[in-house]
Computed example of a mutant assay.
Amino acid sequence: MLSSFGLATARRVRVIGARSAFSTVARTAASSKIPISIRIAAVFNRGFAATASRSATRTATATAPKKTTTTKKPAAKTTTTAGQKKATTTKKATAKKAAPKKKAAPKKKTSRPKKAVKEIPESIKLFRQVKELKAKGLIKEQPALLPATSWMVYRLKNGKDVSEKGAIETSRILKEGFAVLSSAEKQALQDEAHANKVRNDATLISWVATYPVETIEAANRARTKLRKLGKPSRASLKDPRKPKGVTTAFSHFVSKRLASGDYEGVPVTTKLSGIASEWKDMSESDRKPFVQLYLADRERYRVERASLSPSP
């Protein structure tokens, strides 16, 4: 049975086939002696059968489901055996042991050009040295002291009256006034200066006691160095806690010779040169008593130094 689409197609083919059949019959009618009616019927039937077969094949191909063909990939064959795996792993291990790793080459350091060191001027070096010495010498830390001379006392009392005339003129006027003072006035100034000196000593002793002995010794060394450099400094500090220094054997001998009176009225330089020559001519046995005095004094200094309170 044909579908509706197939029947409609067959009807069209019949009409077309009839037209072609009539034309074909008309062409062949003249050459053939077969009756025309038989020939028309044969042509019509042949065309109808061909048309029906073509429409049937079209509908069959249109309605038939399409088959999908999937091609499977062949599975990879494993040809390696357990023995071959072990052999390959051992070869890799031996290859790793045999070929040591190459150490990375150290990176070359690019040498930067060194900066030229600037030389410090001598003036700046001296300035820094003086500043350091003043710090060690406790210059700023030392308390203010009263005038300890008659001139300083007079200047302090009368300097304010003429201070408006300038430093040079003030100094000239004060010197002229101090020169014409009476002996009684000068004695009063000396007495006041002496009293101030006593007060200053007491103030310094109490202030020195607030520092360790080693710090005061370092301050005195710094003050001495400042004076050698020609810079303003202050007098060395007296520390009653510090033990008396050790007296050498030669110093004991000099003291004994001066006390003997043999060099009475002889100049100092002659005394010292004569005593020094005597010391050189002395034997070891003659020097031994003075050496013993020196050793005893050194032991005394060691004990007194050890008895000082430790530095904070």
Rank of each mutant, 00 (worst) to 15 (best):
T94S: 10
K85P: 00
P35D: 15
M282F: 10
A99T: 15
K96R: 13
T269E: 14
V198H: 01
A10Q: 10
R58L: 12
K109Q: 13
K114M: 03
K72Q: 08
K186T: 10
S255Y: 03
E122M: 07
A296P: 05
R302V: 07
V162W: 06
K131N: 13
S233Q: 04
A218G: 08
V162M: 01
A8C: 05
L226S: 00
L156A: 12
S206P: 03
P310R: 07
T110P: 11
R19D: 13
K136P: 02
L145K: 02
T270D: 14
S163G: 04
T94K: 13
N45P: 03
T70K: 15
S273Q: 07
P310C: 06
S123I: 07
L293F: 01
A87Q: 14
A10R: 02
Y294D: 09
R199C: 03
A62P: 02
P74Y: 04
S3M: 00
K77L: 06
K108V: 14
T61A: 15
L2K: 11
S283D: 04
T69N: 06
K271C: 07
A218D: 11
I205E: 12
T89E: 14
T28I: 11
S37P: 09
E176V: 07
S283W: 04
F290R: 01
A296K: 15
V266R: 09
R298P: 05
K107P: 02
K108S: 06
K109D: 06
K97S: 12
S309Q: 09
T269D: 14
G230N: 09
A30Y: 10
P143S: 05
S183R: 08
I216Y: 04
K134Q: 14
V13E: 15
P312Y: 05
I120S: 10
Y211S: 04
M1K: 08
P35F: 00
S233N: 04
M1W: 11
R234L: 15
V266C: 02
K73V: 08
T70C: 10
R12Q: 12
Y301G: 01
E217W: 03
L156R: 14
V25T: 07
W279F: 06
E185F: 04
P243T: 03
K228H: 08
D161G: 08
R199G: 12
H194V: 08
N200Y: 01
T248R: 09
V291I: 09
A148S: 13
F290A: 01
K186R: 15
S31F: 02
K175C: 10
K77H: 05
L133V: 00
A41Q: 11
K114D: 03
T203Y: 01
L2C: 07
L204C: 00
K160H: 06
K101P: 12
P35I: 01
S20F: 09
V162A: 08
A276R: 10
R27G: 08
R27S: 10
K115W: 02
L226N: 04
N196I: 01
K108M: 02
A219N: 00
R14N: 08
V25R: 04
L272A: 06
A41L: 07
T170I: 05
